[in-house]
Write a protein that binds this DNA or RNA. Structure first.
Lengths: 326, 326
DNA sequence: GGTAAATACTTTACCGGTACAGACGAGAAA
DNA sequence: TTTCTCGTCTGTACCGGTAAAGTATTTACC
């Protein structure tokens, strides 16, 4: 106990005794209290776990995830907490969640059927979900995906568009919006689809006239393939909305390959406002990535509110990839 | 013990007993072995600590640091290890190092006089230093800063330049290269300065004719101010080399503000090959950021080699910001 | 039928701390 | 003088696991 005090609470013993303890510690090669033992004894680790849907290597490639982490980091730094990134490894990740030395989790954009969810619940630690269906967790941070998507579609409707195409991630075989909504594993994707539908049906255009296309993956190549499918249709859409900026950039590429002029013959809109979107002049929906991370951590640390749902605003950013319907 | 086995080693007990244990666990609300206790007992935490010179918020803004983390993450993922980012907090960071629940540290670009170094040593955990003077640590990963800088200066010499300016970070009051080398806190900075000197003196140009300029900070604003000082001198340099791309971009800005044409009247070179460098057409030195992180972690995990120093190559990337001397 | 080896559990002995409650002497207040 | 308080230091009792060795009970095999 005296040793513990010597290292952790200098005010609890006289300077002489303290120095004697520390000297002996040096002599014996004792490097201070063991963090593992302290964690066991105190029941606190001093670190927050971050769980991301994608593998870590992908997370560091994705600017949105990096910005989210930035937000988490900013609060962690204030609170003197470490950040523990829990890796994603096929079939082993539940185990990694179970053994993570953390006081709580921030969970980013998790699929509905992710096996790690059970592990998180069993840990009985507080956790905050980002981009996950609110209501399915006590602490939830979301952006207003639906409103953002609705505004995008409305913007296109206001420009006179009536023939729409939708580009979705992952290979899918659904034909109708309802099938798609039922099959989608990510809350965010469903909300965006709902948002587009809100506006399009609101304008009196039946949603079953909207062409849905998807392709494997979730990146530019995905958008290129899926966008190509839409552009090769007999009744080509005049406007294409995409689940992400990366996919929208792929659609632009597909259009260029086919000699379809954007925005004269085709309008394209993305989602996220990634840095590349600004450079490409892509119309998109801006969302506060960093604030998502910060808000989640704040919810987690505020033990006074056991249940809370934060909805952060989105903003339509019109750029040069959208224009009046030809 | 039987409970421990039920959760961790199903093959050590009969399915019936195991099910009985798990059922009782559910009934009692026991969520599986406590990671803290396991860490204490096993003496392993399953996580690697990453210590960065800058605050975490800055680390996530800096593409080089993010790529380094990416490299660390790629190896962690293979090895099923977590990554714990240790925040940087003035006067408190040694404590955070002492309490971090990790099996080892990767230390990125630490200043010579950083107080956390003592804490790291006292932990008696393995650690690998990136961008730190090799020889001062058992495990070191560096890039060939000196050779990279030398090639940059040589490239300018080959283009006919003889009047050089150097832009350094942080406000400094040194006049000679030796003073600068003694005052600099970062190994990387010293090596780059040495590299430039190697080439310039090698061409028969005395290094005391080279104008040194610095300004507070380490970013674009720093380069703009320091670059401005150089450009406002009576005997303006025809070539300016910078410690980083960010600062080089600031120099470009300063040149533009003064109507100095790059590269016709002034050549500018950076270091790092940040994404912005390519867009700005900046001549720079490419370095394998990601591989630095991965190599450090591999050294750390390979307990067979208690001492090892890795030197990764750099590559000169000539672009349009350098041209023959006017 | 007897012994070796495998299977299925259990016991023992730590891992290295911290919270909290004494114990004890010295000076302050009653 | 007695009692209270305070500053220092120490003792007790956990925190919740796991490795390794020990004990039965089967099964395997000649």
């Amino acid at each position: 106990m005296t040793v513990s005090n010597a290292f952790n609470r200098p005010d609890q013993l006289s300077p002489e005794l303290r120095e004697r303890v520390l000297a002996k510690a040096r002599e014996l090669g004792y490097g201070g209290p063991d963090p593992g033992a302290r964690a066991l004894s105190k029941g606190k680790t001093g670190s927050i776990g971050v769980i991301i849907d994608a593998p870590l290597t992908l997370a560091f490639t994705d600017p949105a995830a990096v910005q989210m982490l930035h937000g988490v980091a900013s609060v962690c730094e204030q609170e003197e907490l470490g950040i523990t990134l829990v890796p994603r490894i096929k079939d082993r990740d539940a185990h990694l969640v179970r053994t993570a030395l953390v006081d709580g989790f921030v969970v980013y954009c998790m699929a509905d059927d992710d096996a790690r969810m059970d592990a998180i619940l069993e840990r009985r630690l507080p956790f905050a979900m980002i981009d996950y269906e609110p209501g399915r967790a006590d602490l939830a941070v979301n952006i207003d995906d639906r409103v953002g998507a609705r505004r995008t579609a409305q913007h296109l409707i206001d420009l006179g568009h009536r023939r729409f195409g939708v580009v979705l991630g992952w290979e899918n075989t659904f034909n109708t919006a309802d099938e798609a909504l039922a099959a989608m594993q990510y809350h965010v994707d469903r909300e965006r689809l709902r948002g587009w539908r809100d506006a399009i049906e609101g304008a009196g255009v039946p949603f079953d006239t909207v062409a849905l296309a998807s392709a494997p993956g979730f990146d530019q190549a995905t958008g290129r393939v899926a966008g190509g499918k839409l552009l090769d249709r007999a009744n080509r859409p005049t406007a294409i909305v995409c689940e992400s900026d990366q996919m929208a950039l792929g659609v632009l590429q597909a259009a260029q390959e086919r000699g379809v002029a954007v925005p004269q013959q085709l309008s394209v809109a993305g989602f996220d406002d990634a840095p590349e979107a600004a450079r490409a002049g892509l119309t998109t929906v801006r969302q506060p990535h960093q604030e998502k991370g910060a808000a989640a951590l704040r919810l987690l640390l505020d033990t006074a509110t056991p249940r809370a749902s934060v909805l952060l605003p989105t903003e339509l950013v019109p750029r040069s990839s959208t224009a009046p319907s030809p």
